[in-house]
């Protein structure tokens, strides 16, 4: 192999390059078709989730608090604040979980929606069931998880999925903090 064989290097390089170029062009085309649609779907599902957690809201106003947290203020058709919707996530145990929590104007929880859950399929999926999510309704302040919920600020853990219950509750508690800050801001300003 003393002599540099141009043909032996050039042909594979060129053919691989052509394949890559064609592939990328095709992908670019597909992307231009689907990009808008994907954004639309994401926006629509977020809007839908907001409506589910704040039932009597007409429209939402996006705001950012001083800590950089984004939250939505729910307004009714007269422009009066009826609640808040906050999306929070938790990834302390590896899998990511994203929860949207809705609050009434006085800071009570009006709805909990699990947006993404990157848990082992199966166990964590039960968190999406109504029976679990309804545990949060009407509660206020920091919540804790227990095996047999008796006190007002306790959530009964999902059977066999204490970890997921904890993660969801952490998300809700973070959301509560953001909401309380927002409430304070609304009252002062």
């Amino acid at each position: 192999m003393k002599k540099f064989n141009l043909k032996e290097i050039l042909i594979p390089t060129v053919s691989l390059f052509v394949i890559c170029a064609v592939a990328t062009a095709l992908l670019g085309m597909t992307n231009s078709v689907t990009e808008e649609k994907i954004k639309e779907v994401a926006a629509a599902s977020a809007a839908e989730a907001r409506l589910r957690v704040c039932e009597n809201a007409e429209n939402f106003e996006e705001k950012t608090d001083k800590n950089g947290n984004v939250y939505f203020v729910a307004k009714d058709k007269d422009g009066k604040t009826v609640g808040f919707a906050v999306t929070t996530d938790d990834k302390s145990y590896g899998g990511k979980i994203e929860v949207m929590t809705g609050f009434s104007a006085d800071g009570k929880i009006t709805g909990v929606e699990i947006l993404t859950i990157d848990d082992t399929p199966g166990l964590g999926m039960n968190a999406k069931k109504d029976s679990f999510r309804n545990e949060y309704l009407g509660k206020k302040g920091a919540l804790t998880v227990s095996k047999s919920a008796s006190a007002d600020n306790e959530i009964q853990a999902l059977t066999g999925a204490t970890i997921t219950s904890n993660a969801v509750t952490r998300c809700v508690n973070t959301a509560t903090e953001i909401c309380e800050n927002a409430l304070g801001g609304e009252n002062n300003g």
Partner: peptide, 13 residues
């Protein structure tokens, strides 16, 4: 990989 990405984009949309 190109076909996978195409399918991925279509599924997402």
């Amino acid at each position: 990989a190109s076909f996978v990405t195409i399918i991925q984009l279509l599924v997402k949309a």
